[in-house]
């Protein structure tokens, strides 16, 4: 049977996606390995920031025993989760999807669009700051240490619940980044869109229940980034029900879907920087 023209124009995209992904990650790794000193700088920076963050929590707990129902070590576990998520944000989101505004302004986004691979996928993994894995590892280590201090060894059920909710949290954060960066299609002049995220993510350092009602309304319900640390940390310390785990998966999937729709809508009206 003679293949139709349409078949020929679709050169096995399914397979390509994984090959492209692997190639991009390999490329980032090769680039980063040239600068091993950056790993130590990143490591030192992370240790310093973690120390400061733990000291801040210790300061709060020197005047109270519980914050929004969370004990000191439970909040430290949450801080560890926060730092692991910071590693994902800094290592993947900021260098990848975070570069969208700049690419639109400089016109290099047009080159991304001409590639025979999904533009969102390509942009997401275009560049990885692999040394930020230090934040990820140190964050999870801190959470592990806090669990040890709480005297709650992690059983398989809790570990699984944590893994699922953590993945959902990453999905939500990614969706927030994608939707936020899509604003660049409309507001070309704004350089610091990620700053909005940075500012709001500050509120996610502490359990959502630690805030008074009025602020909780803003941080937690209006701008739901605060949940992205509270939910996985709750699963870790055993505060989350089975239903909560299932809900988090639903929220994660819904967020990905909505952000994908926003992305498609934004692309449809994109007419290149000069247009």
């Amino acid at each position: 049977m003679v293949p139709s023209v349409a078949d020929a124009a679709e050169p096995r995209l399914e397979l390509n996606t994984w090959a492209v992904l692997r190639a991009l990650i390999r490329l980032s790794a090769t680039l980063e390995l040239q600068y091993p000193a950056n790993f130590f700088a990143s490591m030192f920076g992370t240790l310093f920031w973690l120390t400061m963050a733990v000291l801040t929590v210790a300061l709060f707990y020197s005047h109270t025993t519980h914050l929004g129902g969370w004990s000191f070590w439970e909040t430290v576990a949450l801080l560890g989760v926060f730092n692991a998520l910071v590693g994902v944000v800094e290592g993947v989101f900021r260098p990848g999807i975070g570069s969208l505004a700049e690419q639109i302004r400089h016109g290099s986004f047009d080159l991304v669009l001409t590639r025979p691979v999904d533009a969102q996928l390509y942009l997401t993994f275009r560049e990885l700051d692999l040394w930020r894995i230090a934040d990820f590892v140190l964050g999870l280590s801190l959470a592990g240490y806090a669990m040890h201090k709480l005297g709650r060894p992690l059983d398989a059920a809790h570990a699984l619940a944590f893994f699922i909710t953590f993945a959902s949290a990453i999905a939500v954060l990614y969706s927030v980044w994608l939707a936020l960066m899509c604003l660049a299609f409309w507001l070309v002049a704004i350089e610091n869109l990620p700053t909005v995220f940075d500012a709001l993510f500050e509120a996610a350092r502490y359990p959502a229940s630690a805030y008074p009602k009025a602020l909780r309304l803003v941080f937690v319900y209006l701008l739901p980034v605060a949940w992205t640390t509270t939910i996985p940390a709750s699963a870790l310390v055993g505060r989350l029900s089975m239903l909560g785990v299932v809900e988090s998966v639903g929220v994660g999937c819904a967020a990905l879907l909505v952000s994908r729709l926003v992305w498609r809508a934004a692309l449809r009206r994109y007419t290149s920087a000069g247009g």
Partner: peptide, 25 residues
């Protein structure tokens, strides 16, 4: 001015977080 407004957001949220926590304590 849009960028400045975004920086400002940060300058307002950080103390708001601290106030929120101390208020609860």
């Amino acid at each position: 001015r849009a960028d400045i407004a975004l920086w400002l957001l940060w300058g307002i949220i950080e103390p708001a977080v601290a106030l929120g926590i101390w208020w609860s304590i």
